[in-house]
Design a binder for these strands. Structure first.
Lengths: 241, 241
DNA sequence: CAGAAACCGAGTACGCCGTACTCGGTATGA
DNA sequence: TCATACCGAGTACGGCGTACTCGGTTTCTG
């Protein structure tokens, strides 16, 4: 138990000794690349070592285990949630919407992060930076500090939940390997039996007339987000109520 | 490639041959019990086999692999989302709130399911049943079918996202093994350096005056849910707008 | 009622995984 | 210059999911 167990306090290397051949950023970049193209399951210490041309156990000179690698990956992606040149507009609603949209876009580019960021939320440099920015967005609205945290937490809960399910939808299609037709062929018999049972009329309607007035997934995301912001706005102190 | 690859269409056993010693429900119950008390990571085919007193490979007579076990676990828990004696009140808002509250309670009892249900959403008997019930809740409000699906999807996105993060919070404390004090001691040095840097004044405020007006986690859940329902209600066709 | 067919449960084995421990070689600070 | 501290790599262990195989038992068929 050294004095700093935390990854973010542990220096990457001691002052003494030979120059290190690799680096945490190198490791992190490779890991993100692998996870982006082959999924989180493809990440293993052996695989990452091979990827950067190192011996497997050499990685343990840079991180204390696989958990650290995951933490580094998350922090690196979270950095993108807040653009470096971001300036707040002063309109909390526009700012929050902008953040939510951007988070969604980044999450869609890195499909492995939504499930992780819901589960893991240790403080890390870029998460701290993002939280600070998000808090500034809702500052000065007459909310107490914990109310501000509640508002932000609510928005993030929605964004995370939505994107997770959005990705699951896409993944379900990709897992079977092919397109929607293939999926229907696979699940078809079961769904037909559901319809035929007559016990689930609403689902039956969904399966028969479901594709009629298709709602774009981006529009669905925006709908929920705007309804949430509507509800929040209506209860703001300045709004009277 | 048999004619029914789907788990839910595959009969548990052929008509011929000796009586099976175990069953899917037995397997599922053991798996849920293990996951509840030791986490999802504790689930392995060897472990489950030991648990029910079977040879490891015997399990493969009942399921086609670990994926099937997970699917069975999810479906069994989802069954609890809708109480058997549930009757709809006719008040869509009360019904939706009741469902959301219950889903949260069930998820808190089975901490492993929130991350899974976000990622996996294959149709299974109890998920179909739940979806049908949820759709009935928002039927007759003048919404198109896909608008109804959008409303329900929005609420579930929020619930799932919130509970996932709620559990992550609790898990982060439990992972270090002990209570909040222990966590603070561990993360303390890093957080202090964050405050000391002066670059994140809002986070600094949070860490210093954060515990002042504590908001109960149940109240935070209710807050977000009610704001979401507010926003949805305001845009209902009957509401004019 | 007898025989054949079908199926059960279990064992063995393969290729993955994370990582603890160890050691020869090398760059650094005194 | 040389002792020290550290680097990169190798080996090994216990665990994982699951493909394949086989002896014994049960059920259906005639």
């Amino acid at each position: 138990m050294t004095s700093h167990e935390n990854l973010w306090m542990r220096p990457e290397h001691p002052a003494r000794g030979p120059r290190p051949t690799f680096s945490r950023v190198r490791l992190t970049e490779s890991a993100i690349q692998v996870a982006d193209s082959e999924g989180l399951a493809a990440i293993s210490m052996r695989r990452l070592a091979t990827e950067i041309g190192a011996g497997t156990m050499s990685l343990y000179r840079y991180v204390s285990g696989k958990d650290d690698v995951i933490e580094l990956m998350i922090d690196a992606v979270v950095a993108d949630y807040i653009p470096p040149d971001l300036v707040l507009s002063g309109d909390w609603r526009a700012d929050l919407r902008g953040l939510a949209d951007r988070v969604r876009q980044v999450m869609l580019r890195h499909p492995w992060i939504a499930p992780l960021s819901g589960t893991r939320q240790q403080p890390s440099p870029n998460r701290v930076r993002m939280l600070d920015t998000a808090l500034r967005m809702v500052d000065g609205l007459g909310l107490s500090f914990n109310e501000m945290l509640t508002v932000i937490g609510t928005v993030f809960a929605y964004v995370n939940g939505f994107v997770e399910s959005e990705l699951a939808e896409a993944e379900a299609l990709r897992r079977t390997g092919l397109d929607l037709m293939e999926w229907m062929t696979l699940q078809g018999p079961y769904l037909q039996s559901v319809v035929a049972s007559g016990r689930y009329p609403m689902v039956a309607r969904m399966l028969t007339e479901g594709g009629r007035d298709y709602v774009d997934v981006g529009d669905r995301f925006a709908y929920g987000l705007e309804r949430l912001l509507d509800g929040i706005a209506a209860r703001l102190p300045e709004a009277g109520a």
